[in-house]
Design a protein around this nucleic acid. Sequence first.
DNA 1: CGAAATTTTGATCACGTTCAACTTCAGTGG
DNA 2: CCACTGAAGTTGAACGTGATCAAAATTTCG
Lengths: 255, 255
Amino acid sequence: MTVTSRLTRSVGESSPFILRLQQYASLSDADIAGLQAVVERELTIRKKRDVVLEGYETRKLHIIERGFAARYKLLSNGKRQVLSILLPGDIIGMPAAFFRSSLYSVTTVSDVAVQVIPLIKFLDLCRRIPSLAIAMLWYTGHELAAYADHIVDVGRRSPLERVAHFLLELHSRLLAAGCAAEDSFEMPLSQEIIGDLLGLSAPHVNRMLHQLKAENLISMDHRQVTFEDREGLRLLARFEPLSPTSLPAGVRRLA
Amino acid sequence: MTVTSRLTRSVGESSPFILRLQQYASLSDADIAGLQAVVERELTIRKKRDVVLEGYETRKLHIIERGFAARYKLLSNGKRQVLSILLPGDIIGMPAAFFRSSLYSVTTVSDVAVQVIPLIKFLDLCRRIPSLAIAMLWYTGHELAAYADHIVDVGRRSPLERVAHFLLELHSRLLAAGCAAEDSFEMPLSQEIIGDLLGLSAPHVNRMLHQLKAENLISMDHRQVTFEDREGLRLLARFEPLSPTSLPAGVRRLA
DNA sequence: CGAAATTTTGATCACGTTCAACTTCAGTGG
DNA sequence: CCACTGAAGTTGAACGTGATCAAAATTTCG
C-alpha cells in the first residue's frame, strides 16, 4: 500500500477526531475513554447519500472516520452552494444540531465511515469535562476560520486563485488527517462539486484546472492530484496554511 | 428620543451580550456576576480605528456594547473582503484570540463602546461554569451559521438578492440587539464597505440600492433605511431569519 | 459491455467591473 | 455661520470575464 492514496488509517492510530482535539486541549486517557463511551455506534454510509437534510431535526453528531462528505445548501433558484468539504476528523451535524432544524444538508461524496454520538450525551460530557468543552470551542473556532477563508475565496479571489487555493487547502487538511502524501493526494470530487464550492461553473473549473496544468503547477491522473510546483501554487493562490497548533503558548497551557 | 434611531440601550437593561448568552443557555445571577467580574475595563473607541490587526497577537476579547465594527481581510492584490459586521452583543477578537496571531483585522465603523476581557480569564471562567462554555459553543455555532449564509450570498446569489438579503439580515440582528425599529434602522455603512462585504463593486451596490428603491421595496433617507415592502424584499432575497431561540427543546433544557 | 456520469470543447452573450468625472454630503476651522 | 475640504454617493461608457447552453468525448461503474 502506498501512503499516497490511502484514505484509511493503519490500526493502532487513534481516531482523527481525537487526534484533532488533542491539538486544541490536553485530554487525559479518562477523557478519551469518556468520549469513546458516548459513541452510540459506528456505521458506513454509501456514497451519494444524504446524512443530514435541510429542514430536518438532528440530535446526533456523526464523526467522520474515513471518506469525504460535503455540506451544502440548495437555493430556490436551483443553484447549489457547497459550504465545506468534510474530511476524517470532521463532525457532520456540527452547526446543524444547534438549531431546531438543520440549516444545511450533508451528503457523502465517497463511502464514509462514521461514529454516531447523540448530541445530548455529548453536551453532557462537555459539562463534566470542561477541557472538552474548551477543545470544542477551539474546534468551532477553526471551523469559523475555514469559513472565513472560504468567504474571501468566493468574494474577492479570481477563479484561478480560487481553484489553486482550494487544492492547497484540501491537501493541507488531508495531510493533517494523515490521508495524503507530501505532494499529492486523491480527490474524489467532481468538477461540478468544486464549482459549487467555489462559486464557479463546472466548465470554468475545468478550464482553470487545465491552466494550472499548462503552467506546470499541478498534474492530474485519474483522481490523483500532484503538486509539481507547490511554491508557485502557493504564490499564485496566496495561500496561508492554518496551523492547528498555533495557539498562544500561555493560553495553550491553560486549556 | 425615537426608538428608531437609537444605538444605545436605556439604563436598567442588561448588556446585549448577556441577553444573547441567555438565549443559548440559562445562566444564574452568580454566573452573570462572574462574567462581569472578569471585565477588565470599559472603553470607547473612536470611529475608523483598528481594534485588531491581522498578524498581531490578541489575548483580549472586546465585547461590543454600542456601535458598529467590521471584521475584514486585506488581500495582496489590494482588494478587501469584509467578513462580518459586528454589532452590540458581538465579540471582537473571537476567532482571532484562538490563534497565535490574528487572521483578520477589525475596524470600527462608528464610535464603539466595548468591555475588555482577558482571554485567559474568560477561558478560566468557562472551566468553572460549564453552562457558559456550552453557551459559547452555541454562540460560535450561530456565528458559523452566519458565515455559512455569507458564503451562500457571495457564491450563488445575484447582486440584487445579496443587497436585499444583507439589509434584512442586518435589520434582524439589530432588532435582536434592541437597536432598530420594526421596519427601519440606521445604517452607518458606506456603500464601499457593503461592496467589500458582498463581493461587489461600490458603484454596483449603488445601482442595486437604487433598484430596490425603484421597486418600492425600501426607501432611504440619510443613513436611515426603511422597509416599504418587507415581504416583497424577503421573497426577493429568499431570506430565512436565524431565530436564536430555535434550539431543540430537549437540548435546551439540558443546556 | 452498456449506461450513466463526468469531463472537455466551443460559441455566444449578459453581467458586473473598471475608471473617470461629477455631485452631494458631512465635518472642520476660520 | 459660512467657506472649505475630503469623503461618500451617483452616473455613464467601455471592456473583459465567466456563465450558459449544447454537443462530443471520455471515464466510471453496475
